[in-house]
Simulated assay, not measured.
Amino acid sequence: MIKEEIIQKLQKFGLTKYESLAYITLLKLGPSKATDVTRESGIPHTRIYDVLSSLSKKGFVDVMHGTPRLYAPVNPELVLERLKKELIEDIENLKRAFEDLYKETHGEELPEIWTIHGFENTVERAEYIIRAAKHEVLINTPFEFLKQLRDAIERRDDVLMIIISNFENVPKWLSEKENVILAKSGEAPWLMGTWVIGDVNYALFFGTLPENKGKERFYSFWAKSAKLIQNYVHWFYTMYFDNSRKIKELDYDKLGKPVVLTHIRTIITVLKSVGTNRKIEVIGRSLKDKTQVKVVGRVINFEYTPLTANITIETEKGEKLRVGGLGSYLEDIEGEVFLLY
């Protein structure tokens, strides 16, 4: 790399042209007097002391006090590691600042929607969703693709999973999992799309599976957006799950309590199996004034249609509140996290 290119790159890290020249010169000379740096670099004598003092403050030069005073270059490896650390910290701080600005206006984190190229990359993203989920995973896919996710699914006993597929015979690695609800898909077009959804954090979608020769040209779609995923979950239930036949229930009594979930339709799906009159804790927002609230009580009823989904909670004080999921506008509470006992 020529000297001019090095100077340009150093200027990107906040050094002036003279500071860059002085540091490069010291690397060539080693510990030197200011007059030596001036003579070798061409930096004006009237500027050299200010330049070397600034380099010292920025951590590029050590000052060796004595007679004469010498200036030594700091090891480039140490300098670059410090710059790297500061750059990463600055990027992370900017990222958080940008996300906070977006969230102040839109009420959610900055959405990410990506096109994933290649079948293997799609499998990797689907496995990541399963690994990263904290509470629940929703999957609708042909069994051919489900087998690709076997290892990731087998490792997760700590999240609730609802899996829809065109099962012929359910394998033991699924049938023996206590935390899984299984459903056999209806006829086409119910399996025209594959969905893998983790909490309200990530979702993956693609259409039909590729033939071998098309795997490199295969595309899928990746989303990170709570509002978008809320719609995906609605489609998952109303298009797929509600038109499929349940073939394995959740072993609810064997699960650790509370069971923590993020989607109102998943909560209702569990309640349909285990019954209402269950203690529940909901963390969410009041639709009246958008303040953060926590509601504790017992589920006494639920409403579930293609258009609406909510539960009615009776608190210890006898107050009855209707709680919906993300995007609620008809209920009293917009639930974000549900803890079912």
Score class of each variant (00 low, 15 high):
E136I: 15
E144L: 11
D158C: 07
L174Q: 02
N179D: 07
T141A: 06
K177D: 08
V170Q: 01
F143S: 12
D151K: 08
P171I: 04
V180L: 03
I153R: 01
A133G: 03
S175K: 05
H135C: 09
V170W: 00
A132P: 04
I153P: 05
D158H: 07
S175H: 04
V180K: 02
R156T: 13
V159M: 00
V159N: 00
L138A: 04
N166I: 11
L174V: 05
N179Q: 11
I153S: 02
K134N: 11
D158M: 09
K134H: 10
S165A: 08
E176M: 13
E154T: 15
P142N: 04
H135A: 11
L138C: 04
R155N: 07
I153E: 04
R156M: 08
V170L: 04
A152W: 02
M161I: 03
E154W: 10
A132R: 06
L149W: 13
H135R: 09
D158V: 13
N179L: 13
S175A: 12
P142R: 07
P142S: 11
L174T: 04
P142C: 12
R156G: 09
Q148L: 07
I164L: 01
F145H: 14
L146T: 12
L160I: 15
Q148K: 14
D158P: 02
L146P: 04
W173M: 12
D158Q: 07
P142L: 06
N140G: 10
R155F: 07
F167H: 08
V159D: 00
E178V: 13
A152D: 05
V180R: 02
L149G: 05
F143L: 05
K172L: 15
L174H: 06
A132H: 08
I139N: 01
